[in-house]
Amino acid sequence: MKKEGVILIAEDDEGHFELIKRSLQRAGICNEILRLADGQETLDFLLIRGDGPKREPDKQYLLLLDIRMPKIDGIEVLEKVKQDPELKKIPVIMLTATDDPRTIERCHSLGCSVYIVKPVEYEDFADAVRKVGLLLSVVEVPQISRVK
């Protein structure tokens, strides 16, 4: 992933966001990291609407998506993103506390790229995020030129 690529973290819990961000940075990721506080904000950002920050065309994005979020939950965000002919190119990594097999199954069938369960144990958690970081450093992310 190129340095100018932006890592979007859709996470309602500020603490989680902070921990994820730190872990990623410790893993050597120095891309821009942007927090989106809930599903609504995430969709608004991606679909370039509303008052908040907006996606810039021609930039690379990667989305780390939590499931349980206020207003619109992560599954719905995933669904919307994967239905959009352009947005569906964005790699989506589910990073969530839910380890329910049915949820995992559903997310994969909707088209998520990776599904990672947030371990509660800090070391495990940090390790998991570090691995995500390592993954991010080698994956190639497509460009999104336009919005439907």
Binding site: D13, G15, H16, L19, R68, A97, V120
Partner: peptide, 17 residues
């Protein structure tokens, strides 16, 4: 049980921090 785990992640994570 699911929602209660989220704050735990913080408690643990920031304890480590």
């Amino acid at each position: 049980s699911h929602d209660l785990r989220a704050p735990l992640v913080n408690i643990q994570g920031f304890s480590h921090e």
